[in-house]
């Protein structure tokens, strides 16, 4: 049974340089309301415990086969077969696996446990760095995210949050004063495409961001560039209109799609869904930047 005061985390990564200013410790929270076709962290989407299986690490010792109560693992002459339909997530195989080929995707951690890790790099944070909540969508666990941020505030650790912006607006007033910088994803300004490629309507995301801004929250807009999908004039125009409506947005960052997230589907037992044709060339990125600069946007 999951207790309220436990936070579902996939990973805590130290010495992150690109998740906000300075040196940051990024805490990836598990669970996301969106299902972006280009997701870079697919293991963070589901709130469920998923067993990650890394075939290249398996040495074929058979320990998982021996301990699995459901017969989900089988060894053949040349392969280790893992039938996820049978798996109930008991993690007996994870404990038995000697090589790290089987790992749980979810760890349950208390605020204190997370902060113990975060505190380790305090000497490196200086005036700029600190914690970054990422995911997944941190606000998919709203009370947990707030508790974590509140404790960081109390301890004087800088805070940033990467968010898709799709969460319950009633938390905003509590949230905004706790976050030094929102790294706000703005995926597509075309509502139909947004629904098609992420599964949700963008109106709420935009409303939330405007509310954050009205409450004085500082933000950076992060826009993924997916060639042939959202690298279109209507999206650029939407970015521009959003940028010009915000008071506290520092700049816009364009992030080129990469296919690496697709390969992270494999440990989840799914096909690599990376799409090479979606990767924008350097020229494509230059073009997009120039369009946005012409629209008066400050780019990083």
């Amino acid at each position: 049974m999951k207790k309220d005061n436990l936070i579902s985390v996939t990973e805590i990564q130290r010495f992150c340089m690109h998740d906000g200013p300075g040196v940051r410790t990024t805490v990836f929270l598990k669970g996301c309301p969106l299902r972006c076709a280009w997701c870079h962290n697919p293991e963070t989407q589901s709130t469920a415990q998923q067993i990650l299986y890394y075939p290249q690490k398996c040495i074929g010792c058979g320990a998982c086969v021996a301990v699995c109560p459901r017969g989900a693992h089988r060894l053949t002459e040349d392969a280790h077969l893992f039938d996820r339909a049978l798996c109930q997530g008991c993690r007996a195989c994870v404990a038995a696996c000697c090589s790290g080929a089987l790992e749980p995707s979810r760890k349950e951690m208390t605020v204190e446990e997370i902060l113990t890790v975060v505190e380790k790099d305090r000497a490196f944070y200086g005036a700029l760095g600190g914690i970054t909540l990422s995911g997944g969508e941190p606000m998919a666990q709203p009370e947990n995210a707030l508790a974590l941020l509140r404790e960081c505030r109390r301890r004087g650790i800088g805070t940033a949050m990467e968010t898709c912006g799709y969460f319950d607006a009633s938390y905003l007033e509590a949230l905004v004063p706790l976050v030094d910088l929102f790294l706000w994803d703005f995926k597509d300004g075309n509502p139909a495409r947004h629904r098609e490629y992420t599964g949700v309507d963008p109106a709420r995301i935009r409303q939330n961001l405007c509310r954050v801004d009205a409450l004085g929250g500082v933000s950076v807009l992060r826009c993924i560039m997916v060639k042939g999908v959202n690298m279109q004039e209507d999206h650029y125009e939407a970015i521009a209109s959003l940028w010009h409506s915000l008071q506290h947005c520092k700049h816009v960052e364009l992030l080129p799609y990469h296919a690496y997230g697709g390969s992270k589907m494999i440990p989840l037992g799914m096909e690599d869904n990376g799409r090479r044709e979606w990767i924008p060339s350097e020229e494509d990125m230059e073009t997009a930047k120039n369009i946005l600069i012409k629209k008066g946007i400050r780019l990083k």
């Binding site: 340089m17 200013p21 300075g22 790099d121 000497a123 200086g126 700029l128």
Partner: peptide
């Protein structure tokens, strides 16, 4: 720029 900040932070730490 982030990278420069990070390197400076490493040295300071």
């Amino acid at each position: 720029e982030d990278g420069l900040d990070a390197l400076v932070a490493l040295l300071q730490g």
